[in-house]
Computed example of a mutant assay.
Amino acid sequence: MQKLNLPTYHFKLKSSENKTLIFDKFRKKYLVLTPEEWVRQHFVQFLVDEKKYPSSLIAIEKQLTINNRKKRTDILVFNTDGNHDIIVECKAPSIKITQDTFDQIARYNLKLKANYLIVTNGLEHYYCRMDFEKETYVFLKEIPSYKSFR
């Protein structure tokens, strides 16, 4: 798999039926290793190891319904009150991050009302803080660490 613009982590990999599988510690199962899953696994590890978010506050591929259609957030971080704090949208490294990507995560956030949005393809990362009063988001240099706003 491609080297990402994130720290290097070691994952449990195995082969099955000519496919490489990666073990997801959060869902406690092996998944087909796609380029998007590679980014998702790295980014969630980044949140836990580097930014010190407790794994107990993180959900992977959490389902939500928007306009009677089932969607899934890639990574959803809750605060200690159980409210949505951060939504992370992961794309494969070959996918260019465009306005459509931001529109997608913004649609999710109309329902979830998270304080922060992150869009990443593993090579580029965009961090935003919501400004609900102005109905917009403000770009940040980086996402705050867990302890910095607790």
Rank of each mutant, 00 (worst) to 15 (best):
Q2E: 06
Q2T: 09
K3V: 15
K3Q: 13
P7N: 03
T8C: 11
H10V: 10
L13E: 00
K14H: 13
S15Q: 13
S15R: 12
S16H: 15
E17G: 13
K19V: 08
L21R: 12
L21D: 05
I22P: 10
I22A: 07
K25H: 04
F26S: 11
R27C: 09
Y30V: 08
L31G: 11
V32T: 15
T34S: 06
T34V: 10
E36T: 01
E37D: 10
E37L: 04
R40G: 12
R40V: 14
F43M: 03
F43K: 04
Q45R: 10
F46R: 04
F46E: 02
L47Q: 10
L47I: 07
V48I: 12
V48F: 01
D49W: 12
D49G: 07
K52G: 13
P54K: 01
S55R: 08
S56N: 14
I58S: 12
A59W: 01
L64T: 09
T65I: 14
N67R: 12
N67L: 11
R69K: 09
K70P: 15
K70S: 12
D74H: 10
L76M: 15
L76P: 15
V77E: 00
N79C: 02
T80Y: 05
T80R: 08
D81P: 15
D85S: 01
D85T: 03
I86S: 01
I87R: 05
C90W: 13
A92W: 01
A92M: 04
A92T: 06
P93D: 00
S94D: 10
S94E: 07
K96A: 15
D100T: 12
Q104D: 09
A106D: 04
R107L: 09
L110K: 14
L110G: 11
A114D: 05
A114P: 07
N115S: 03
N115Y: 11
N115K: 13
Y116F: 09
Y116M: 05
V119F: 14
T120N: 06
N121E: 02
N121H: 01
G122W: 01
G122K: 03
G122I: 01
G122E: 00
G122Q: 01
L123C: 09
E124Q: 15
E124L: 15
E124T: 14
D131F: 09
F132N: 04
F132P: 07
K134E: 02
V138I: 13
V138G: 08
L140F: 10
E142I: 08
S145V: 10
R150V: 06
R150H: 08
